[in-house]
């Protein structure tokens, strides 16, 4: 299902530096908070000099507030981290499609790398409410880049952590850890592309359905600029198909991450087209 977005002025109500270079900001916006579904994101207009809206995933949503959890990547995220308190920001959201849920009693394994944890607070809350047995495997380069663990545990989730350098949890990648678990009924993934690709290949080989929330550089965040596409199996329901394209042997079409995604089935994504 694709969201019904709003253009809203959301007031900044909380700011916390959760790790060096990582921030959690809270906003009051009753309608966006109420409509937020797992994997939805918002597009934020930053005050000051022009830049295109910044896309960020919705982390938590409760009552009339939602939070964003982000890293200082570059210009816009650095500016967002120092927005004045109570500044109203123009936010479009929620945007994008959402994860679909398995039936009650099934088992789900979530694989997240670093800041890729963001779409999973809402998902874990939904899965637990639907009585899906859920394990989150969260990996990061090192301890100080591991964010969101406490909030997920507070929901009651089984969270396993690992780091590349062993500074927290097991010294392993999130996928290594996930492979050691009993095969689930469904995988969910978000994080760096190499992790997502490896997870997709693992899930596809094991015949386990796997939903991936993808990321690309965005321009419009609305589906009009064609800047954010990913190659998708030709004919996939999410692909923007050009049926009579002359190169009939081509296996892929493109889909826009911003409106056709961000969530795609791993079997549909053509990583090495």
């Amino acid at each position: 299902m694709v969201s019904t977005p709003l253009l809203e002025a959301a007031e900044l109500i909380s700011r916390e530096r959760v790790a060096p270079g990582f921030w959690c900001l809270g906003f009051r916006s009753p309608e966006i908070a109420r409509r937020a579904r797992p994997a939805h994101y918002v597009a934020i207009d930053l005050p000051g000099t022009f830049s295109v809206r910044l896309p960020l995933g919705i982390w938590t949503a409760r009552d009339d507030t939602f939070t964003l959890l982000f890293r200082e990547w570059g210009e816009r995220t650095t500016r967002l981290a120092c927005i004045a308190d109570h500044e109203p920001l123009s936010i479009i959201g929620p945007l994008g499609n959402e994860f679909s849920l398995p039936d009650t009693g099934k088992r789900a394994v979530i694989v997240a790398g670093g800041i890729g944890v963001v779409p999973f607070w809402l998902l874990v809350r939904e899965l637990l409410a639907a009585k899906v047995r859920t394990t989150v495997v969260l990996g990061a380069r090192s301890k100080h880049m591991l964010v969101g663990v406490d909030e997920l545990r507070a929901l009651g989730a089984d969270v396993k952590i690992c780091t590349d350098d062993g500074s927290a949890g097991t010294r392993a990648t999130a996928l290594d850890l996930a492979r050691e678990l009993a095969p689930p009924d469904v995988f969910y993934g978000c994080g760096p592309p190499p992790l997502l690709r490896a997870l997709s290949e693992h899930a596809n080989a094991a015949g386990i359905p796997c939903q991936i929330s993808m990321e690309e550089t965005f321009g419009c965040s609305m589906g009009t600029c064609w800047g954010c596409v990913v190659p998708i199996r030709r004919g996939s329901p999410q692909a923007v198909g050009y049926p009579h394209a002359s190169d009939e042997k081509r296996e892929y079409d493109f889909a826009r991450v911003c409106v056709d995604g961000t969530v795609f089935w791993s079997r549909e994504i053509l990583w090495n087209r």
Binding site: T49, F50, S51, V52, G74, E75, R76, E216, T217, F218, G219, C225, W226, G227, C228, V229, V230, Y242, H244, A245, S246, R250, F254
Partner: peptide, 25 residues
């Protein structure tokens, strides 16, 4: 003819602007 456009990344947010190479998809 139909055109699939360029490979990714196609965009970069730059100071005061946007750099794009969509490739007429």
């Amino acid at each position: 003819e139909p055109r699939l456009g360029n490979e990714m990344p196609r965009l970069l947010s730059t100071p005061g602007g946007l750099l794009n190479a969509i490739g007429l998809q």
